[in-house]
């Protein structure tokens, strides 16, 4: 796009514009924020992938036995709720197979804990339903728990998974927030470039008029702005990334000290680091495009 001879000869003394320092600092801060936020988004993503895979595939629904004076009636009620839960689970499009465990299977499971001699038929036995999910199917545990409660008040979902699901929802929200910060940062920076470019065009009105009168097309002028602003974008990006890298390490270090090993699952892949290291190129492109577009748009309003 930029011919070598237009690169070497820039009639517009743009490198002396007083807004250059402001833009460079602004772009540095923007790229810094962008890099740290991007690291956050990518870490949350890797965390989400891990968590999702641990709650994908299967789940267990437990029907806690109904307590009643009439043992038989209570037991029947428990079984009715189990049947309703099974019906509901089978009706879901995400399920592949729903298997209520038989009494024998339950006894088998409980024997190691209770010993051989206990007569299980006299105990209020919980019922377990094993649910196999279709490949890749994702379930919202919270809504499932709510639905189950309406047909089988005694049903309860695997606690750990329920909690993990809440965490996933939270992290998902956090990720959306971070993504909107990324968009906002790009928007604000482009806006700053737009306005300083417009100011500069006004400042160099006389030279631009001469260029036009000598037959220069708008692109000739736009290229000079694009070249200058690309440089600002690149060096601003380098500074921003240089500050962002140690910051990301400090945040990662702090996060690892949180107990529970949840955050351990968050790590930045090589792809993530590459993306962050490529940010100066990205900021260069955004700066260049914005300046180019601003010049073209502004000049179109002149004769």
């Amino acid at each position: 796009m930029l011919r070598s001879n237009t690169m070497r000869h820039r009639e517009l003394p743009l490198s002396a514009d007083s807004s250059n320092l402001f833009l460079k600092v602004m772009i540095s801060i923007a790229v810094f924020l962008f890099a740290v936020t991007l690291a956050g988004v990518l870490s949350i993503n890797s965390m989400l992938v891990n968590w999702n895979s641990s709650i994908l595939g299967s789940l267990t629904v437990q029907i806690i036995p109904v307590n009643g004076v009439d043992k038989l009636k209570a037991k029947n009620e428990t079984i009715v709720q189990e049947q309703r839960a099974v019906a509901l689970l089978e009706a879901m499009p995400e399920t592949q197979k729903v298997t209520p465990l038989t009494d024998a299977q339950l006894e088998q499971l409980l024997k190691p804990w209770l010993g051989d001699d206990v007569d299980l038929s006299n105990l209020p036995m919980p019922r377990l339903i094993d649910v196999k999910l279709k490949k890749g199917a994702e379930i919202n545990f919270m809504t499932l728990a709510e639905k189950l409660a309406t047909v089988a008040p005694q049903a309860s979902l695997d606690n750990h998974k329920l909690w993990l699901n809440k965490l996933i929802n939270f992290a998902g929200g956090l990720k959306m927030l971070a993504l909107s910060i990324l968009v906002l940062v790009i928007g604000i920076t482009s806006g700053a470039i737009f306005y300083s470019t417009q100011t500069s065009l006004g400042l160099h009105k006389d030279i631009i008029e001469i260029l036009h009168l000598l037959g220069a097309k708008d692109t000739y002028i736009a290229q000079q702005y694009a070249a200058k602003t690309a440089l600002l974008g690149f060096w601003g990006g380098i500074v921003g990334v240089l500050f962002a890298i140690p910051t990301i390490f400090v945040i990662a270090h702090l996060a690892q000290q949180i107990e529970g090993g949840i955050i351990n699952e968050a790590h930045l892949s090589w792809g993530g680091w590459t993306a962050i290291l490529c940010l100066p190129l990205f900021s260069m492109l955004v700066a260049m495009q914005t300046a180019y577009y601003t010049v073209k748009r502004t000049l179109e309003k002149m004769m």
Partner: peptide, 14 residues
Amino acid sequence: DNVALPLRVCGMDE
């Protein structure tokens, strides 16, 4: 550079 300008804006070889 002033005299070269009309040639540069039409992209002539340097």
